[in-house]
Amino acid sequence: MPQVTLTVNGRQHTVDVEGRTLLVELLREKLGLTGTHVGCDTSQCGACVVHVNGESVKSCTMLALQADGDSVTTIEGLAAADGTLHPMQEMFREHHALQCGFCTPGMVMTAIDLVNAHPSGLTEKEIREGLEGNLCRCTGYHNIVKAIAAAHPLMHAKAAE
């Protein structure tokens, strides 16, 4: 059986997989990281978004073997060791940007990448367009947009420290 070696949330793993094993299956079923969700089978809902080498990727649309040697960050890897939430997580909570929580991990991972990619600022329109690949059925997106706008200065202030 093929093996894949990758770093997930800072920890290196070597895992036996099949050729067809998806990255999300490796995370959920082999590593027990069930925070990353599967909400569709056509690569549209974005519940499975993780970061691969710092960029948002749909982990349901990537083979585990493609991630060999890569560094993966999931929702479980965002908070500090002492439990302090990432500013994006904190702003989602502050602005009630989640209800059922199912789309939330993917939404947060996408949002962080979006903010990272736009250091000089994000308009409401850019945020809404940046969420193109993430579906939420609960919130109507209103508070998600607010949370991301609020997280932007916090994240870039932190980066400037």
Binding site: T34, H37, T74, L78, Q89, F92, R93, G101, T104
Partner: peptide, 19 residues
């Protein structure tokens, strides 16, 4: 009041049936 369930969901610690 900010929601008490949020830290769980925001940290990937939700416990959905498929989990």
């Amino acid at each position: 009041v900010r929601r008490r369930e949020d830290v769980r969901f925001l940290s990937g610690k939700g416990n959905y049936t498929d989990d």
